[in-house]
Write a protein that binds this DNA or RNA. Structure first.
Lengths: 109, 109
DNA sequence: TTAATACATTGCAATAATACGATTAATAAA
DNA sequence: TTTATTAATCGTATTATTGCAATGTATTAA
C-alpha cells in the first residue's frame, strides 16, 4: 500500500530511521560536509557550490532542519545554518553503539 | 523530475548516501538489530517477529543485500543472512569520521 | 517608497519506495 | 514422485521523494 507501518516498530527504530533518511541523500551529505568544514554557518553559498536550483537547496535544508540535524537563524537578509549539537551527539552515540555491537564474524554464513 | 542528480556529487557522497538509504527504514533497522543480537543468522523468523508480509520482508532483505550491508547463503530450504563484515566496518569507520569531524559549537547561530 | 537581495513556498511532473497477494522456484520430507 | 516448506519474484495500488519554475515574503539599500 506504500505506507510505512511505523506503529509496529519501536520509537528508537522509527527515530533512527528518520534521522538516517534525512541524511540519505548526496546533496544533504554535501550540505552537512560543507557546514562541518566552514564551522561558521553558510546559506546561499550552497546554491553556488552545489549544482542545484535554489528551491531545491532550500528544500533539502528544510528536511535537515525538520529532522533536527541542523538549525538556522535569520542573519539580516540571509539565513545562517549550523549543526544542531544535541541531535548530532545523540546520533553519533546511537550509531556508534549500533555499529560497535557487531562482534565480528563468528563463522556463520 | 524526481531523479537524483548523482553525477554532480562525489563518489563518496553517493556511496555513503546509498548505504544510509538502505538502512533508513524501521523494518531494516529491526532486521539488522535482529541479526546483531542472534549473532548466528536468521531467515523466515523475521516474518513472524516483525509484523510484515513475507514478500515485504524478502524485499527489505534484498535491499540490504544489494547495498552490501548483509549477505545470505542458502541453508537447505531456508536462507541464512548475516552482516557483511567488510561493508559494516567500512561504514562504521566512515560514519565515525563524519560525526567526529564536528568540533562542537563555536558560537555560530 | 522603491528596488534589490536572499530564502521560503507552492504547484507540477517524473521517478522511487512501501506493502501485499499471487505466483514461481527450489529443496526437504513422505 | 508427490507434497510441504521456504523464500524470491511479479504485478499492482498507494504514497513519498526529487527537482525546478514561478511566486511569495521579508529585509536591506537607494
Amino acid at each position: 500500500m506504500g505506507l510505512t507501518k511505523s506503529e509496529i516498530f519501536t520509537d528508537e527504530q522509527n527515530q533512527l530511521s528518520q534521522l538516517l533518511k534525512a541524511m540519505a541523500h548526496p546533496a544533504r551529505i554535501a550540505i552537512l560536509q560543507r557546514i562541518l568544514i566552514s564551522n561558521t554557518c553558510i546559506c546561499g553559498d550552497l546554491v553556488e557550490e552545489l549544482g542545484l536550483a535554489q528551491a531545491t537547496i532550500s528544500q533539502h535544508l528544510k528536511e535537515l532542519k525538520t529532522a533536527g540535524i541542523i538549525q538556522g537563524t535569520i542573519e539580516g537578509v540571509s539565513v545562517c545554518y549550523c549543526i544542531n549539537p544535541v541531535t548530532w551527539k545523540m546520533m553519533e552515540h546511537q550509531l556508534g553503539a549500533f555499529f560497535s555491537s557487531y562482534k565480528g564474524e563468528v563463522k556463520c554464513c
